[in-house]
Computed example of a mutant assay.
Amino acid sequence: MTNITILYENNAFIIALKPSGVNFHSEKEAGFVVQTSQKTGIPLFPVHRLDKMTSGLVILAKSSEVAAQFGKMFENREIEKYYLAISMRKPKKKQGWVKADMGAARRGDYKLLPTMNNPAITQFISCALRTHERFFLIKPHTGKTHQIRVALKSLGSPCAGDERYAAAEEARKEDRGYLHAYALRFVFMGEPFSFVSPPNEGERFVSTECINQLKIWNKPWELF
């Protein structure tokens, strides 16, 4: 059983922390959702998902009705999400937007397309940490599969440890994939909620330089 932290719970939903390297849905073994249900003793309904390499904040509903409510909120872009990433490559630009349609590439990868029919929209700022490390604070305005990972690759700065979108040999030397779901902000049933959870696994994420920068980025919604 994976060590899963429940950050918040009420009668409608819970906020749990997904560790890096754990499948969201069950494959050969119980995934994050099933393990969290087992930990809480109640059935839980996912309303969004994180890739296996990604750690951080996840909303899990306690009923299908609440899950449907959150589904509509995501669809209407009423839930703000903020992510952290570290790359070992300098980006083409230090802040701004990545906007483009996404399409399937080889081996289950995705890529940006030269069209804007239904674009993935990603906003970001960044700063330097230690030698070669670039630290990103990212606000996705849409929720497409691999959106942030593809956006960072398009900037020439794939996530460190991302065996799919970074150089595989280099990525395998890392202790994790460096993408973390850092903060959530939304209004549910008239009540405002905000959650911020810094990463606690991965040598690069727990460096003194990273921790100090997160003191500056502790209210990410004020930076966009």
Rank of each mutant, 00 (worst) to 15 (best):
N3E: 15
E78S: 13
G143V: 02
C210H: 13
I138E: 02
G41C: 09
Y110K: 15
S20C: 03
E222H: 13
L223P: 03
Q95K: 07
Y82M: 00
R176G: 01
G190R: 12
I42T: 13
R172W: 13
K153C: 00
E174T: 05
E174S: 09
D51I: 02
A67T: 08
M116R: 12
L17E: 11
K219Q: 12
L112G: 11
N3H: 15
A183I: 06
S207T: 15
L112Y: 10
L17K: 12
S20W: 02
V98Y: 02
M116E: 12
G161V: 00
D101Q: 09
V206M: 08
S197D: 09
E80P: 04
A171N: 00
A12Y: 15
A128P: 09
A171T: 01
L113P: 07
T2E: 15
V196S: 09
E163I: 01
C127M: 10
L112T: 07
S157D: 01
C159F: 00
A61K: 03
C159V: 01
S20V: 03
Q213E: 14
K99G: 01
H132I: 05
K153L: 00
T131N: 12
P199W: 03
K62G: 07
Q95F: 02
C159R: 00
V196Y: 14
H25I: 09
I125A: 09
D109E: 14
L137Y: 03
G96D: 05
F188G: 06
S64K: 15
E9S: 11
P220H: 05
Q213L: 14
H132G: 07
M116L: 15
D101A: 07
C127A: 15
S154Y: 11
E78I: 05
Y83Q: 07
I86C: 05
S157Q: 03
V206K: 10
S63Q: 14
S197I: 00
P114A: 06
Y110I: 01
F186V: 03
N218E: 15
A12F: 13
K111G: 03
L137C: 06
P220D: 06
F195S: 07
I79Q: 10
I59G: 03
L223A: 08
A16I: 06
P199V: 04
E78Y: 08
V206N: 10
R49I: 06
F32C: 03
G41M: 12
I125F: 03
T115H: 08
A171P: 01
S26A: 10
T142G: 09
G71W: 04
R49Y: 08
K215D: 08
H180R: 05
A30L: 14
E203N: 14
S194V: 07
H48Q: 06
